[in-house]
């Protein structure tokens, strides 16, 4: 691929050694987190930790399409809810456990993402964003009218008290989400350094030029929308087990869509580390505000921080750290 766009010429992290360092570091971090939380021995810590990790995964998934390819998805909540309701439906129909449900959610979210990809072939910019928003409303309406999963009344999920090697079910969910988040971030990082990532960056910077230079934009967009959709659905799959009760209002909550956009932008869109920083910062801030002030205040914080960052630091925290190197 001989695309000479600004993005493609950026220095890439050195490969094999970097990979080992990343996965080793991630594994160590996971062990340290679980060990630290066990010492803390507080059920709320698992609860809050899950909340943050689900946003790490959601923001990372959004970033694969929004950050790398430049296609803004306003309907993140729709994808997340599809994952959550896949779990509810499969559990009710076949009594499946959480893990197979997560795999199924990935498949269904991927298929939905592929469908969105078909829209992205025809729609650019803000039209694509609004199409994804309508898709979320459409899915919301379908779920509200689908009585098998509880319709607008919602569905209760009775979760087991604990799963053997883990102290509590909260810890189990935390570990599941931790592993999923690390896999998601790993995938994003892999994309960033690969030909796929360079192709996506090329089509983000100038889709026509990329096409003219021989980048298979059609295939790349479909891959990006499918991956992004699958990961978003995975982020939502354990939601019903986490809260014990799921209704359309909660699953399609606008907070998910806003956070999915705000977190990568604040952390630094288009880098694998940006959404992670953004999600950890914003989600912790929101947990803290929900507990100490009110749930209205936590959304206010997101709004204010988003406006400040969009205006003053458009490249996010990662951009601030790197300084003006790319501009």
């Amino acid at each position: 691929m001989t695309v000479k766009t600004e993005a493609a010429l950026r220095p890439r992290p050195a490969l094999p050694a970097g990979h080992i360092a990343f996965w080793g570091g991630a594994a160590l971090l996971c062990l340290a987190l679980v060990a630290g939380f066990r010492v803390l021995d507080n059920e709320y810590a698992w609860f809050a930790g899950y909340f943050i990790l689900q946003y790490v995964l959601l923001a990372t998934a959004w970033n694969i399409l929004g950050g790398y390819a430049g296609y803004v998805n306003f309907g993140a909540a729709g994808f997340l809810a599809v994952g959550a309701y896949t779990t509810v439906a499969l559990r009710k129909a076949f009594g499946l456990d959480l893990l197979p449900c997560i795999a199924a959610a990935a498949c269904i979210g991927g298929l939905l993402g592929l469908g969105t990809g078909w829209l992205a072939l025809r729609l650019k910019g803000v039209y694509f964003a609004i199409a994804t928003l309508s898709l979320a409303v459409l899915l919301h309406t379908i779920v509200v009218n689908w009585s098998f999963v509880g319709g607008s009344r919602g569905a209760y999920v009775l979760r087991p008290a604990s799963i053997p090697p883990f102290v509590s079910y909260g810890e189990y969910l935390f570990v599941v989400m931790l592993v999923l988040a690390v896999i998601g971030v790993g995938i994003a990082r892999g994309i960033e350094g690969s030909r796929l990532g360079m192709g996506l960056a090329a089509l983000r910077d100038d889709e026509r030029a990329a096409e003219a230079a021989g980048v298979p934009t059609l295939r790349l967009k479909l891959v990006a929308t499918t991956l992004s959709g699958a990961l978003m659905a995975v982020a939502g799959a354990p939601l019903s087990h986490y809260t014990g009760y799921l209704n359309p209002e909660a699953a399609f909550g606008l907070a998910f869509s806003v956070n999915a956009i705000a977190m990568p932008l604040i952390g630094g869109a288009g880098t694998w580390f940006g959404p992670v920083i953004g999600a950890v910062l914003l989600a912790s801030l929101q947990q803290a505000a929900t507990v100490t002030i009110s749930s209205a205040a936590n959304l206010m914080i997101v709004g204010v921080v988003l406006v400040i960052f969009a205006a003053a630091a458009p490249r996010g925290i990662v951009g601030l750290i790197r300084g003006g190197r790319h501009r």
Partner: peptide
């Protein structure tokens, strides 16, 4: 993103 934040 700016208008999204303004909305919130």
């Amino acid at each position: 993103a700016f208008f999204f934040g303004v909305m919130f």
